[in-house]
Amino acid sequence: MTRPEVGYLLPTRDQAVHGRHEPKRLVAQARRAEALGLDAVWAGDSPVTRPRADPLLVLAAVAEATERIALGTAVLLPALRHPILLAHQLATLDRLSDGRVIAGVGGGFPNPHTEAQFAALGIEFGTRISRMTEALEIMRLLWSGDEVSFRGAHFDFRDVRLAPPPARPGGPPIWLAGSGPAALRRVARHADGWLPYPIDPTAYAADLAVVESVAARPITPALYVTLCLDDDPDRARERLRVSIERYYNAPLEFVASIQALFAGTPGEAAARLRAYAAAGARHLVIRTATDDHEAALEEFADRVLPLLRADGSR
C-alpha cells in the first residue's frame, strides 16, 4: 500500500461558528502543521451559506509564513466568481508560494442553503455546473501565459493575458469534488485530482475505478474526511454530533449518510484511514471535529500520523 500524503483543514468555519475571527491564529496553525510534518493545509469556501474567512486570502498569508507545505482549497466554488479574476488570484497565489497551490473545486451541494447563496450573489443555481466547467477551461487557457479568447454559454471575452503567470507551467493542479456518474465523468474529463468524501472505503474504490477507467490524464485520488478523536468512543460520537450539527445545521445522521465521518480512538481512526488508502486514496484531507483545534492537531500528529506513516512507502 502506498503511504498517503496527509493534509489538515484549517478551521475557518469553526472560528466563525464560535464568533472568533482570528485569521492570524489560522496562519499559526498552518505553520504548526508544517512543523509537525503534514504535507498540506487546506481552506474551505462559503461566503454566505457557511460564512468564514476567505480561503485565498488566508492561504496567501500562509504562503508567506511557510516554506514546504502545499496549500489547497477544499473546496472552492468557481461558479461564484468570474473565471478571469479567479485565475488571476490563483496564479498570484501560486507565485507567492513558489508553486505549492492545489485548486480543489466543486459545484456546491444541492440544498436550499446553497441555492440561497447563489441567489444572494445573483447567479442562477441551475447553471452552477456548466459555469464551473467553463471556468476550469478558461483558467487553464489563461494559465498558459498566452493571450487567449473564449466564447461559451456563460463567459465571452477576447484577447486576455494574465500577469503574473503561475509558478508552474499550466498552473496549479485542479482537484474536483463529487460522486455519482455525472460527477465522476467530470473528474475524468476536467481534473488532475479527485477530492470526494464517500462514506466507506468500498464505495471509494468503486468510484475510483470508474474515474480511472475513463480519465484522460493521471488523476490524484484524495479524500476529505472528518475525524473526532477520543479514547472513549461513545464520548467521541457525542462530540462529533455536536460539532457536525453546529457546522452544517443538519442532523448527524443525514451528514453521515453522504459524507466520510469517523468518531473513535486514534488507533481506530488510523485503521479507518488506512482502509481508504488501501482503496486507492493518495492524499487525505483531515478535518477535526472539536472545540480545541490546536490540541486536536497535536493529537492527530502525535497519535494518528505515525500510524499512517508506519505502513507502506512513498
Rank of each mutant, 00 (worst) to 15 (best):
L297C: 08
L136C: 02
E64G: 15
E147S: 14
R303I: 12
I244H: 03
W42L: 15
D207A: 13
V285S: 03
E22V: 13
A289R: 10
A103S: 11
A177D: 04
L305C: 04
V187W: 00
R100L: 07
D231W: 06
G108H: 04
H154W: 05
L9N: 07
Q117P: 06
P47I: 13
R239D: 13
L76H: 11
P169V: 08
L297F: 09
P201S: 07
L184G: 04
E64W: 02
R81S: 10
I123V: 15
V242H: 10
Y276V: 03
G152Y: 10
L307K: 11
L121T: 03
R140F: 03
F155H: 15
L96Y: 06
L9G: 08
H113Q: 14
A65Y: 06
N111A: 14
K24C: 00
P164I: 13
A278T: 13
A191P: 01
P11C: 11
P181W: 01
P172A: 11
L38P: 07
L136W: 05
V6N: 02
F157V: 10
L284F: 00
A222H: 00
P51Y: 02
R168F: 05
A53W: 15
S144T: 14
R161W: 01
R314P: 01
D207W: 00
D159V: 14
P173D: 11
